[in-house]
Amino acid sequence: MAKRIGSKTLILSSSPSIIGYAAVGAKKEKQGPLAGYFDLLSDDSSFGQKTWEKAETHMQKTAIELALQKCNTPKDQIDFLFAGDLLNQCISSAYASRDMLIPFFGLYGACSTMSESLCLASMFVDTGLGQRCLAATSSHFCSAERQFRFPLEYGGQRTPTAQWTVTGSGACVVAPSVQAPFVRAVTVGTVQDLGITDINNMGAAMAPAAANTLCQFFSDTGTRPEDYDMILTGDLGFVGSRLLERLMQAEGYPMAKLHNDCGLMIYDRKKQDVHAGGSGCGCAASVLCSFILPQIACQRLKNVLFLATGALMSPTSTQQGESIPGIAHLVYLSSTPNPKEVIC
């Protein structure tokens, strides 16, 4: 049964397991440094579909099906599906789940959706509300550009602080504690808004939320960055990552040597034209499900703090000149079910 410590952190006493996980990507991800870890990579971004939105739906559905196959779990054994994406009304996730007949919670946490869905799935399993739950999300460069910025045909210039939306999807099956990776704790983030209005600088908008959630977790648990093998943020990119490290240093938590960011891992910024790095729901999801979870399962990584970050804006709020609120939810992942050397 979950136990609250501090003000915003829950220790999941049963240490639920992530028993199946899968990552799907497209052409640009296939050219990146993590390509060999993906379960499936397409040679293009259409996945044989007629629209970008249909391609994203296909991609998320494929990631879910692969995750289920890898842990030999039929879909009728899944109690709840927690999923979301970047598109209006979370249509990619809704259509992906349409034929599965799994009780569905549609989520919108922007690029934080993977950690949000994983938090909720793990909490449901820990409290016994579900025996097996799915957490999934996706993003698509072309569908996101069309909704949030300009159609690709416009050919607009991208600023150096801009990030490239990952065409990718990740899915996790969470079940009672049987094997690594284990979910040991979650910290639910609060909305932070420091007045950033530049939609081409998501890293700056999200970094304060990441810092706030991390400081909250360290305060609640009495731990420090050096107690963990890796502190992995979702997609702050180059700009946001440097800002986060400076913010944490100022709070007395130096972590530059322990911190990495999914937006910096998925692409090679020197060889691929992605400016400040990757972004999008599928960024954190695909890096987590392709590379990080297997490293925890084989104990190359033992204690990892994963927090995907999201910019909670919309095209309408941007057009009205509103600032960009940020959010970050934290999931503590471990290779052992009860690592007493970190949290008792």
Rank of each mutant, 00 (worst) to 15 (best):
L232C: 00
A55W: 04
D126S: 15
D44W: 12
G234M: 03
T190P: 05
M313Y: 12
V174E: 03
V342E: 01
C289F: 04
L305G: 03
E341V: 07
D235W: 01
C262H: 00
V304L: 00
T113W: 04
Q147D: 08
L214Q: 05
S93E: 06
M230F: 00
S7W: 10
L258P: 04
P181Q: 09
V239K: 02
T51L: 08
L68Y: 14
D79A: 14
L293M: 11
M114T: 04
I296L: 14
M248C: 01
Q320G: 11
A144Q: 00
F306Y: 14
H140A: 08
S169W: 02
G106E: 10
K8S: 14
I199K: 13
T167G: 08
F148C: 01
G237R: 06
F141Y: 15
E116S: 15
A2W: 06
A250R: 11
A110N: 06
A2F: 07
S241K: 02
S317C: 11
S219P: 02
G170W: 05
A276Y: 01
F105N: 10
Q60G: 01
T223E: 05
T127I: 13
Q192P: 05
R132N: 15
A308M: 00
T51E: 01
I292G: 09
N212Q: 08
S122T: 05
P151A: 02
C119I: 01
K271W: 00
G326T: 07
Q216Y: 04
Q31N: 12
V274Q: 06
G234Q: 01
I324Y: 04
L194A: 11
L87F: 08
L288A: 15
Q163C: 10
G263F: 06
S323H: 11
V239E: 03
C281A: 14
F182G: 04
I19K: 13
F306A: 06
F104S: 14
G278P: 11
E56A: 12
N88E: 12
I64S: 07
I266P: 05
T127C: 14
T309L: 01
E145P: 03
P103E: 12
F217H: 08
I266L: 13
L134S: 06
I231L: 15
H259N: 04
S42K: 05
S317P: 03
F124D: 03
L264A: 00
T197E: 10
P33W: 02
Q179E: 15
A175P: 09
K271C: 06
P74E: 01
D85I: 10
T190G: 08
Q249G: 09
Q147F: 02
P74C: 10
Y228I: 00
K70L: 07
S122M: 10
P33T: 03
L244G: 08
A63K: 07
S241A: 12
I199T: 14
T165C: 13
I327P: 02
T213E: 07
T159D: 11
L301N: 05
T336I: 09
D44R: 08
M123R: 10
I5R: 06
V173E: 12
C289P: 03
I296H: 12
H140P: 05
C283Y: 00
G36T: 09
V183D: 03
D76R: 13
T167Y: 10
M255T: 00
V304H: 00
Q77T: 07
T233M: 06
P181K: 07
G128E: 10
Y95F: 15
Q319W: 11
A121R: 08
I196M: 13
P33R: 09
T127K: 13
A256R: 14
V191N: 07
S279K: 03
M123V: 15
A171N: 02
